[in-house]
């Protein structure tokens, strides 16, 4: 669906994207992770035709981006981090404006507005001025505007910034629902749990390069890691503390997982014996990090640069 091949973007002397290559498959929710200045926004801007790139090739829907920008844009939507609508217009006025500006036939627009309103649960506030909506409602309106052209690809740039957990969960559920409609979602966020919750595939970008890409599962199970994750049936913290005190390499992650530092047979055998003595039942043992966050920090802590 989206193919990025050896793309280079320079801002004067600074290289924002350094021979970056990436492929995003149709119908996936693709997470784009990276520290500030890593090149995420530049990449999203390029994919939306807002920024020129210096070298490389980008194709979307198998069409070269630059030559087919207008046609490609008709099938995409960008949901920016900022609330990009008019606060002094009502919800329905905003939807009518952003639909009308895209020259969508009126019958289709009516249908698309109904879909956007329903998907984002805005039905009861159509005549309310956007300025009077709560933070979560504003975020939902921001997303609804992106659905007006019934896009095949949705680019979300940190869409849950500054809202309460309940509203965040509602938005994440909405985004997950796009998978059922075979829409492709490119999602950037700083909230790792969000990425873990909704994304099928993840790419970690740092200093303009993709440093890790794959499914969430493959990213979290790294056979070369120096530690093992032992998932257990949930237990009390007190009991886990007593257990871990018996072996220095063992530490608590949470009530249902432990970390074992080291992977040679002697250490693993010893840990299994300790757990058996304490009657702690093991679910699975796997190599790797426990969370995307620890993987992200590990990968991006070296060579950070602002671009």
């Amino acid at each position: 669906m989206i193919k990025i091949n050896n793309v280079v973007k320079r801002y004067g002397e600074k290289v924002a994207l350094d021979h970056l290559s990436l492929e995003i498959k149709e119908g996936t929710i693709f997470g784009l992770l990276g520290p500030n200045g890593a090149g995420k926004t530049t990449l999203i801007s390029i994919l939306n035709g807002l920024t020129k790139y210096n070298e490389g090739e980008v194709t979307v829907f198998d069409l070269p981006l630059v030559e087919n920008l207008t046609a490609i844009r008709k099938r995409c939507a960008l949901i920016p981090q900022t609330l990009a609508f008019y606060e002094n217009l009502t919800v329905i006025e905003n939807l009518n404006f952003f639909g009308g500006i895209q020259n969508i036939p009126s019958a289709t627009l009516k249908k698309n507005i109904a879909y956007a309103v329903e998907t984002n649960r805005l039905g009861s506030m159509l005549k309310q001025k956007a300025s009077t909506l709560s933070g979560g409602q504003k975020r939902r309106l921001n997303i609804a505007i992106g659905l007006l052209n019934d896009p095949d690809i949705l680019f979300f740039d940190e869409p849950t910034v500054g809202i309460d957990p309940e509203s965040r969960n509602e938005i994440l559920e909405t985004i997950i629902s796009f998978k059922n409609e075979n829409k492709t979602v490119v999602y950037t966020s700083h909230y790792m749990p969000e990425i873990e919750k909704i994304c099928d595939e993840v790419a970690i970008i740092n200093a303009g390069k993709i440093i890790k890409q794959g499914t969430l599962e493959s990213m979290l199970s790294n056979e070369n890691a120096d530690q093992l994750v032992i998932e257990i049936y949930e237990n009390t913290m007190e009991k886990l503390q007593v257990t871990c005190a018996k072996m220095a390499e063992l530490s608590i992650i949470d009530e249902s997982s432990l970390m074992l530092y080291g992977k040679d047979n002697k250490i693993v055998s010893e840990a299994l014996a300790v757990l058996e003595n304490e009657k702690i039942n093991i679910k699975t043992i796997r190599y790797g990090t426990t969370t995307l966050e620890s993987l992200f920090i590990g990968l991006t802590s070296k060579g950070r640069q602002d671009v």
């Binding site: 960008l78 900022t82 990009a84 952003f98 505007i145 052209n149």
Partner: peptide, 18 residues
């Protein structure tokens, strides 16, 4: 501009003359 509404309009193929 600050709210990125103009950027959003650009991605909606709104031309400069419009």
């Amino acid at each position: 501009r600050k709210q990125n509404t103009l950027m959003r309009l650009s991605t909606m193929n709104v031309s400069l003359p419009v």
